[in-house]
Amino acid sequence: MSASVDAPAAGIPGGQAGGRVGSSPRARRRRLLAGFAVAAVLLAVVAVLSLMVGARTIAPADVVHALLHYDRTDQDSLVVVDSRLPRTLLGLVAGVGLGLAGTVMQGLSRNPLADPGILGVNFGASLAVVVAIAVLGVTSPSGYLWFAFAGAALASALVYAVSSLGREGATPVKLALAGAAVSAALGSLITAVELTSRTSLDAMRFWQVGSLAGRGFGVLWQVLPTLTAGAILALGLGRLLNGLALGDDVARGLGQRVGVTRALCGVAIVLLCGSATAAVGPIAFLGLIVPHIARRVVGADYRWILAYSAVAAPALLLACDILGRVVAPPGELQVGVVLAFVGAPVFIALVRRRRLVSL
């Protein structure tokens, strides 16, 4: 593939090289690596705080002791290992999944406002869960996990199939329109099922808001394989997304198989969004705002955007989860609610920026 695909800043509207004009590629790479290291350290700090902070604050030394010397008779061990550790690990993997999925979605659709809703992932997962609850009587997160994953996958496949109809194939505009239409139809079905089943309505209220609480290691181990596979695939799509960012005609001229690229992106999105949504619920805004944060730091190269998003997204998700634990004692706000308060102003700012019409 041509070198112009690897460095698309000159060909993407609004793209920047991610460094000062005239700086050498080696110096820019050092700066980006240093920034990535800082972001990784920040993520580690937030993860430690997630183990410390809550209704009961635990000192760092006690956290380490609980992790290394687990004792069922020790209250700190029970809080850290049995409650906060699975919550933190699930926040890490779900954050990685949603951050990478949002980045791939925006690169695939060339839509700066793309998030898991654009391919019907949230609504597909929600419909599968509400049907599992209402029809099959499934109520536990580990029980309806695979229903949510299957619903997300089927909804994404339906959106892609509808948008692929016609001579032009799955263009960014057709993807967005098909996603909106399928989401509206699935949303109507969800409402219809909830109106006929009080049990599904009560269970869905907790799942739909998005939460890291109440999920144990069982949920984590179930989604970890698909999340890992999706993350590896997404991180390998950087060069291909750089080609799509130049336009389909230019990408084809550079020898890229656009149809294959879109199919790979779709598989990555289904694996990442389906797993994360099934595990923690349809958390909004994370996959929308994190790629823009990464893009402002590194420029238009999707290889770096993907890498930064994989670190920034879990850090933001865990930070919002920590904030939700302390703002309303003795209870807590679910992370989906806190993230909505954080993400909504960013979303409004993105809509008002006229130059972000396309990526």
Rank of each mutant, 00 (worst) to 15 (best):
W304L: 07
I289A: 03
L286H: 05
S275E: 12
L264Y: 05
I322N: 14
P291S: 05
L323G: 15
R325C: 09
P291H: 01
V357R: 12
G266K: 02
L350E: 09
L264W: 04
V260I: 15
L286R: 03
A312F: 01
Y308P: 03
R295V: 00
R262P: 04
R354Q: 15
A313Q: 05
V280D: 07
A294L: 08
A279I: 10
P282H: 08
I289R: 03
H292M: 02
L356W: 10
V337H: 02
V280W: 04
L339C: 12
A312Q: 01
C265W: 06
L272G: 13
V326W: 12
V280R: 06
Y308V: 02
G324T: 14
G281P: 09
P329Y: 05
A278R: 11
G287F: 00
V338N: 12
A328Q: 15
R325E: 10
G343D: 11
R325P: 05
V351T: 01
I283M: 13
V290I: 08
L264P: 01
F341P: 15
A278G: 11
P345W: 13
A279K: 09
A315I: 12
A284M: 06
R354I: 13
I269T: 03
F285R: 00
A268D: 00
S309C: 14
G331V: 08
L286V: 11
A307K: 03
S309Q: 09
F347G: 10
A312P: 00
G336P: 11
A284V: 10
S309G: 10
P330A: 11
V298H: 06
G299V: 09
V280Q: 08
T261G: 00
V297M: 14
I293L: 14
L288K: 03
A268L: 02
P282K: 08
I269H: 05
G274Q: 10
V335N: 06
C320K: 09
G324Y: 07
I293F: 14
E332W: 11
S358A: 11
G281A: 09
V280E: 08
V326G: 12
A268W: 00
L323W: 12
L286E: 05
V270T: 07
D321T: 12
V327P: 09
R353Y: 06
E332A: 14
P330I: 15
A310W: 05
I305M: 00
A315L: 14
L333Q: 15
R262G: 05
V311G: 03
V270L: 04
V335D: 08
I293S: 04
I305V: 11
S358F: 02
L306M: 11
A313L: 07
G287I: 02
L339R: 07
L318D: 06
R353M: 04
S275T: 13
D321F: 06
A312I: 00
R353Q: 11
G299I: 12
L333W: 15
G331D: 15
A328G: 10
L356I: 06
R353H: 08
V338R: 08
R355C: 04
G281E: 14
V337C: 07
V267G: 03
T261L: 00
A310E: 08
A263E: 02
G274N: 10
R303H: 01
Q334M: 10
R296S: 07
V267S: 04
